[in-house]
Design a protein around this nucleic acid. Structure first.
Lengths: 152, 152
DNA sequence: GACAATTAGATTGCGCGCAATTGAAATTCG
DNA sequence: CGAATTTCAATTGCGCGCAATCTAATTGTC
């Protein structure tokens, strides 16, 4: 009875999905770290590169919308990527408020070196692709419901 | 065909479970923030309090093992909780290396004020309890497999 | 055209997370 | 016992995340 009680107690750490997500994110980060170290990237920098490898010459704002990050995070991060000669930051001539992010040739070239990363992650997950896709879709749906609440 | 290709491309942002987890963690944090602001806690501080509400007078190391955090994160965090009069930090007399963390009366009292938090999160998730529990268990299992890989 | 409101990005400040290092206490082992 | 090793916490340094504030450019309204 006491066991059943604690298994339902919403104030217990082990019963909180948020802690599951929080701790899984850190676990992923620890798996990614040695892989990304070889590329000279942090995980958030890798995410920005993924966006740019899909579409180049993108406004900072668009990157922020895809990654759910604001300029307070992205501005210094992009300056570091620029210092690493992976991207260039230029003001848009049509709208001087916007900063366009473009890959350098080194930035493009890094895509090939990064190709092995997802396989390594898949292997570490020790899980079938279809299972991972199903989980991913569930988590994305949950995330989107949470984000919907934030806008009130 | 091109669509099918991109739906399977492991190098696309939208196909990465890690980004799903990463962005869901941030979404959770944004939902928690206004709730925890009222308690004067950050989310990691709230996690520490959850641990202490389950068992008081715990070594720092044990908190770290439950939350997957090290002393580099916990030492300053616990100093802030101590400055807020929620915990006390004392060296163990049996083992002078250990620091024991104990709740103050204010720390105990905060548990009642925090009782409404999980319900608010559940409401924001817009999802049944059983669905959340199932997702949580899957994510925990994935996290544990990832953590197992890190230890080689 | 002028002026208010909006939008994009930069900046500042603070709290994580974590690697790496240090120092002290406890344990192991010869 | 005594030296080497291990363990625990603290510290330093760096890169996020994000709130809050600021500046400049654009848009909307009259």
């Amino acid at each position: 009875m006491a066991r059943k009680q604690s298994a339902l107690d919403p104030q217990r750490l082990d019963n909180q999905i948020c802690f599951a997500v929080y701790s899984a994110a850190h676990a992923f980060n620890r798996v990614y770290k040695p892989l990304l170290d070889r590329l000279g990237l942090t995980y958030p920098q890798y995410l920005v590169m993924l966006v740019l490898w899909e579409r180049d010459d993108v406004p900072l704002k668009d990157i922020g919308e895809k990654l759910f990050l604001d300029s307070g995070t992205l501005t210094p991060l992009l300056k570091r990527l620029e210092a690493a000669h992976l991207v260039r930051r230029t003001r848009s001539s049509e709208d001087e408020r916007q900063v366009l992010i473009a890959l350098t040739s080194q930035g493009h070239a890094l895509k090939e070196k990064a190709r092995a990363v997802p396989q390594s992650i898949l292997a570490a997950s020790d899980c079938s692709v279809s299972e991972l896709v199903a989980m991913k879709d569930e988590i994305v749906a949950l995330r989107d419901r949470l984000n919907a609440v934030i806008g009130e």
